[in-house]
């Protein structure tokens, strides 16, 4: 039986997400890097008490007809949010409102520490040692370990039940490539969960993605689902690279 990780639709991709699940949500905070269609599919499930791990708390506004992670706060799915950039100066988001109202728990994490805790889960490490956060609120309740006379904080791995990520192209083995800065936490979170689900612009034949270009090996990915609609957020990246090359040729 050949390997085939492609599932028919978004509903099937997220069907087994359950009450109390811990979920990595990929992307940086921009809509183009967010697994926005998977997030919408989860928002339609009858689940509660989720723990989310993400870089951003989201804006909670619809962009190009798509939602960011705030859609899960708006639909009251979340018990706890582990996050690096929960709030932003532009808007008071749903996370901030709910946190202030005492309706959810939040754990604030420096961004590099978050990335490395996630990588540690995928890489089978028992934790990581980082100098970041020493002498700040981040140190509270954590073990300080000295190595060669330098102090570090012990930070534990973040292993989730599910990882929802966004990629550009996938093959049926789950090999992934990304576009531009939309690689971000998507590639970091792949494999750092029991089940990794990738939402992609395009599904290509096995072999179309060359070994030199594959960023995420398919073994980290359990399910691949093709996005519906045009994917407006991403369709201009190649054009930018093309125009840059054109400009360079003109200047030469």
């Amino acid at each position: 039986m050949a390997i085939n990780k492609i599932v028919a639709n978004l509903e099937e991709a997220v069907a087994d997400i359950h009450d109390g699940a811990m979920i990595h949500v990929g992307g940086f905070g921009t809509i183009a890097s967010a697994p926005s269609q998977l997030l919408e599919a989860v928002s339609r499930l009858d689940v509660k008490d989720l723990t989310l791990v993400s870089n951003s708390g989201g804006f909670g506004i619809e962009i190009w007809g798509e939602h960011d992670i705030a859609v899960l706060h708006q639909t009251n799915k979340v018990k706890k949010h582990i996050v690096s950039a929960p709030v932003n100066p532009l808007i008071i988001n749903d996370l901030e409102k709910k946190f202030r109202a005492g309706e959810l728990e939040m754990e604030m994490v420096p961004q590099g520490t978050m990335a490395e805790r996630i990588r540690a889960a995928r890489a089978g490490l028992g934790g990581i040692l980082t100098p970041v956060g020493l002498g700040t609120v981040i140190e509270e309740g954590k073990q300080v370990i000295e190595v060669d006379g330098k102090k570090f904080l012990l930070e534990t791995p973040l292993k989730a039940d599910f990882a929802l990520i966004r990629a550009y192209k996938a093959d049926r083995w789950g090999n992934l490539i990304y576009r531009g800065t939309s690689r971000t936490f998507n590639a970091t979170m792949a494999g750092a969960a029991r089940i990794t689900i990738a939402e992609v612009e395009e599904i290509v034949e096995l072999g179309d993605l060359g070994p030199e270009e594959i960023i995420t090996p398919g073994i980290y990915v359990n399910r691949v689902v093709k996005r519906t609609g045009a994917g407006k957020a991403s369709d201009d990246y190649d054009e930018v690279a093309r125009r840059a090359a054109e400009k360079k040729a003109k200047e030469a």
Binding site: G112, G180, A187, S234
Partner: peptide, 27 residues
């Protein structure tokens, strides 16, 4: 392109020699 942005989410120009990093590599 919104697939090539700085940390503020502003689209930035592609430049020869530029490279991309996943998040733990970036940090």
């Amino acid at each position: 392109s919104h697939d090539l942005v700085n940390a503020g989410g502003q689209p930035v120009e592609y430049k020869p020699g530029m490279c991309l990093l996943e998040h733990s590599e970036s940090f």
